[in-house]
């Protein structure tokens, strides 16, 4: 008992007080920064990109496919591709994930998630999710778990993962959606009470990511149902996830 208390004192406070402005290490690869001016259109970056996220002429990166692996930056001789450590990358429409030259973090974030009045009035700042891993590699799953740990502690904002879809306001999907999980995913979705928020987490869920051309995936679910939030990353950083959800349920 006393040992446990001593341990607690030794640990001190661990949580990040201001989650919206939490500092991020500069090495983190977040929002891409593109510069066409010295790009000589050699196409090396496009050639090395494993997911087809990158286009040249002019340079653009589709964050629904991008794994933020940094390979394009490493291969570019002209320093045309860089990554800032900006992590608030979640958006409500897929088109908003295309990053082009001159898109700074402020502009990106301002248009990222529109306020929907009914969301606040229904959820009143608290939202519970059922997480479904449908071929996720356990990278995104570990980061979503981390979002609830003592550092990030999303529970204090009323965001939680619950065990049953019946208790959930929506589902968070990770992974490219395998054929073998397609049925269970839809079943889970249907078991969630309306209005059934759908959140996609990670490059795999957003576009298939590195598994776009795999034989055993089936993404029909996404043709059938509406998605409310797209959160890019590979894996999604806990701060990216929490901030996207907070923006989504905020009040005007």
């Amino acid at each position: 008992m006393f040992d446990t208390l001593k341990m607690k004192l030794y640990q001190k406070k661990q949580y990040i007080p201001d989650i919206k402005n939490a500092p991020m290490r500069s090495q983190f690869r977040g929002l891409p920064v593109l510069d066409n001016s010295n790009c000589d259109k050699c196409g090396m970056c496009k050639g090395i990109c494993p997911t087809g996220a990158l286009n040249i002429n002019p340079l653009s990166i589709d964050l629904s496919k991008c794994t933020l692996c940094g390979a394009c930056k490493n291969i570019c001789k002209n320093n045309s591709i860089n990554f800032s450590s900006y992590y608030k990358l979640g958006v409500d429409k897929k088109e908003k994930l295309i990053v082009t030259e001159g898109l700074d973090s402020e502009t990106y974030h301002k248009r990222a998630i529109e306020v929907r009045k009914e969301i606040y009035s229904i959820f009143n700042r608290s939202i519970k999710f059922r997480q479904v891993s449908a071929g996720g590699c356990n990278g995104c799953e570990m980061e979503l778990n981390a979002a609830g740990n003592a550092n990030f502690d999303m529970g204090r904002f009323g965001i939680d993962f619950v065990a049953s879809p019946r208790h959930a306001d929506g589902i968070v999907i990770t992974g490219p959606i395998t054929k073998n999980m397609a049925y269970a995913l839809e079943d889970c979705y249907k078991s969630t009470p309306e209005p059934r928020i759908v959140v996609l987490c990670g490059a795999c869920a957003l576009s298939g990511g590195v598994f776009q051309e795999a034989n055993e995936i089936n993404r029909e679910f996404l043709d059938k149902y509406k998605v409310d939030l797209y959160i890019p990353g590979c894996p999604v950083h806990p701060l990216t996830f929490i901030n996207a959800v907070l923006d989504f349920i905020r009040k005007k």
């Binding site: 794994t67 692996c69 390979a71 992974g175 054929k179 590195v210 598994f211 051309e213 795999a214 034989n215």
Partner: peptide, 21 residues
């Protein structure tokens, strides 16, 4: 349930990023 067909994909389109995932 997680079967994505990785071994075939590794032959078709191998990459470090795929290996990591």
């Amino acid at each position: 349930y997680q079967h994505r067909g990785v071994e075939d994909l590794m032959v078709k389109k191998p990459s470090n990023q795929l290996a990591e995932s």
